[in-house]
């Protein structure tokens, strides 16, 4: 049980890639009173289709309303709510971190534990790439916090529902 009215919801939206479709979707979500916490977009196997993954804050009732409103945009083909307990979600994050002298070793250890990759090495530090769910990335960032992070770029989440229901979805 939770007293919080507002929780994060993730919706996956399949759209025709017509000009302005991204602004149509984001403007609608904002106009109906939702905050967008994250959005990512990319092409699909069909040439003219794009998939958007949007993280919004709202209660369950308003999530349903958002789905219906999204369907009113002519370019929106399909709206799929992503269910937390069935979700596979991934983000990529690039982190530019300062690491000089003895620090280098410490940073490398954290990177190894998280199976992150170093994609650029400089005399003053690294650029690290990490892929995973948002929690993993948050913890990784928290551990690197004691070192000097100079830049972070996150893609925002992309997500799908699993083939099978692996967790009980009832209750709560």
């Amino acid at each position: 049980m939770t007293d919080e009215v507002f929780t994060d919801h993730i919706v996956s939206v399949l759209v025709h890639n017509n000009p302005g479709v991204l602004s149509k979707v984001t403007s609608l979500v904002t106009r109906r009173g939702f905050n967008i916490d994250g959005i990512s977009a990319g092409p699909t196997r069909q040439n003219d289709m794009f998939r958007l993954t949007i993280v919004v804050k709202g209660d369950d009732k308003s999530l349903e309303q958002i789905q219906k409103q999204l369907y009113k945009i002519i370019d929106v083909v399909k709206v799929v709510p992503i269910i937390r307990s069935r979700m596979v979600g991934r983000e990529i994050c690039l982190i530019k971190v300062k690491a000089i002298g003895a620090e280098r070793h410490e940073v490398l250890q954290i990177i190894n534990v998280f199976k992150a990759n170093i994609v650029d090495v400089g005399t003053n530090g690294f650029i690290v790439e990490i892929t995973g769910d948002s929690d993993k990335i948050d913890s990784f960032l928290a551990l690197l916090e004691s070192h000097q992070i100079t830049d972070v770029a996150r893609t925002g989440i992309v997500a799908m529902n699993r083939w099978e229901r692996t967790f009980k979805e009832t209750g709560r």
Binding site: G20, S23, K24, K72, I74
Partner: peptide, 13 residues
């Protein structure tokens, strides 16, 4: 198309 986005059923350029 930007200005009329929230007040049209659809718009086209």
């Amino acid at each position: 198309t930007g200005i009329t986005l929230p007040i049209t059923k659809a718009n086209f350029l």
